[in-house]
């Protein structure tokens, strides 16, 4: 169903009114949503990422035809028309945006963060991504090329983040727990585990 359903518009209107009246902030709403549901959707994406980290064959398939993988796993809760997974490396950092509206791969990432729809993020990430990412806590060396994927038509993009250092001893399930939604949008770099080898 479209985001622009009458009920979606009424909800958006209500939120704007309450924010304008100072009864509410968008962040307070975001925080509640994060608490109740953030792990539900992104968990699907996190499972794909963790499996790709441990299974080179799966990774290859994920990077060439993620759509059929998602279809075969039968993820619920949102359409993925066509999903493309792009891989972060030491040399290339990928980030995803929809400059025109807020196209977002619900099925693998769950609910989009409010800032994803923010016009400032949408316009600046394609013009000065290095600064925007730095502001979001992702400092990238000048030798790292940034690729911004604009989800502007029917294709949805998801980032395969770099496997954090110090995670050699973790299994797939433990790895999946490390993967955050923001890392799969490409606005977070996963940090290593502090004490490698201690995980049971």
């Amino acid at each position: 169903m479209s985001e622009e359903s009458p009920q979606a518009i009424r909800a958006e209107a209500l939120e704007s009114i309450l924010i304008e009246k100072g009864l509410l902030t968008a962040k307070a709403v975001d925080d509640v949503i994060a608490l109740y549901s953030e792990r539900v959707g992104p968990l699907n994406g996190a499972r794909l990422v963790a499996r790709a980290w441990v299974d080179p064959q799966f990774k290859k398939q994920l990077l060439t035809d993620a759509t059929s993988i998602v279809e075969s796993l039968g993820f619920e809760g949102g359409q993925v028309e066509k999903l493309v997974v792009v891989e972060n490396t030491d040399k290339v950092h990928n980030a995803v945006v929809c400059t025109l509206c807020s196209c977002y791969p619900w099925a693998v990432l769950g609910l989009p963060p409010k800032w994803y729809k923010d016009p400032a993020y949408r316009s600046r990430i394609v013009m000065e991504p290095r600064q925007v990412l730095a502001e979001m806590g992702v400092g990238l060396g000048s030798n790292v090329e940034i690729q911004v994927w604009d989800s502007s038509a029917e294709i949805r993009y998801m980032v395969l983040p770099v496997r954090p250092p110090g995670t050699q001893n973790l299994n797939e399930e433990q790895l999946a727990e490390l993967v955050t939604r923001d890392s799969m949008i490409g606005v977070e770099v996963l940090v290593g585990v502090e004490v490698p080898g201690e995980a049971s």
């Binding site: 394609v126 090329e145 690729q147």
Partner: peptide
């Protein structure tokens, strides 16, 4: 037909160091 087209930041904004990939019919 739908394509993803990669534009370098030099071409788009005359700035170095990144690229923007856009879906275009």
């Amino acid at each position: 037909h739908l394509y993803t087209v990669r534009f370098s930041s030099e071409v788009l904004w005359n700035k170095p160091g990144f690229a923007v990939c856009i879906d275009l019919f």
